[in-house]
Design a protein around this nucleic acid. Structure first.
Length: 229
DNA sequence: ACCCAGGGTCATA
DNA sequence: TATGACCATGGG
């Protein structure tokens, strides 16, 4: 059982995912912050609110832009993203991130940085931790960085592939080294495509088993699911 | 009524 | 370095 064979099994079951569910790279970044420890269904409501500019009917004026979020009063932003929880924390983080983003010159300027520099740069922003930064790296900037989340650690430690106490960085590095392995030489775009699919498939699988057997204690995310074995 | 969700920061030892 | 408190909504 290898990281690649598990990937194949997930891909055979669920097919290509073509993540991230967003229209623009900036929307990916906002979503990455909003989804911190939060169900995506709640994030969707907040994103929709922002796109609607908080209005109930047209004409809408989207507030889902760095400039708008930077200038929006904390209180008002908190209302717009209320549904995704931690709204005070996240309003601060979003405003903080957007201010920084504009200061850096926006997407194109950031995108000129090499992968290691860009990652360090994102991590320096308050409210952007390893997973959030890597969501942005992979799904907004298309960089070859594998996204580790709580599911990843749980699934692979329960399959006995990794130690359950493994930290974020070692686990990410291990995935990046072992997933494709020496199977063949790939360019960055091919790595990006595979990392993109793998993380998406893990999340989709999690949603699937939890929908099928809610809190059953039987799926691989809870106890001894044999689907991935 | 309880459990969980595509985390991160900060204070403390 | 490692643990704990805290943030908060909505669906199963």
């Amino acid at each position: 059982m290898t990281l690649f064979s598990i990937y194949q099994k997930l891909f055979a079951q669920y097919g290509p995912q073509q993540w991230w569910p967003a229209d623009t790279p900036f929307e990916v970044m906002v979503g990455a912050i909003l989804t911190q420890n939060t169900a995506w269904t709640n994030v969707e409501k907040s994103i929709a609110q922002l796109k609607r500019g908080g209005h109930m009917c047209p004409p809408y004026e989207s507030l889902l832009t760095p400039g708008a979020i930077d200038q929006l009063p904390h209180e008002q932003l908190g209302e717009l993203i209320h549904a995704s929880g931690y709204f005070n924390v996240k309003a601060t983080r979003l405003k903080n991130f957007c201010h920084w983003y504009l200061e850096q010159g926006g997407f194109d300027a950031l995108n000129r940085l090499d992968t290691a520099s860009l990652r360090r740069h994102l991590l320096s922003v308050n409210g952007v931790g390893p997973e959030t930064a890597d969501d942005m790296m992979l799904y907004a900037f298309n960089r070859p960085i594998f996204v580790v989340d709580a599911y990843t650690r749980r699934i692979f430690s329960r399959l006995g592939i990794v130690d359950d106490a493994i930290k974020y960085e070692p686990l990410r590095e291990r995935f990046e080294l072992e997933f494709i392995g020496k199977r063949k030489r790939m360019n960055d775009d091919e790595h990006v495509a595979h990392y993109n699919e793998y993380h998406a498939l893990i999340v989709v699988h999690a949603k699937d088993v939890c929908r099928t057997k809610p809190q059953c204690g039987q799926c691989c995310l809870r106890r001894q699911c044999d689907f991935l074995k």
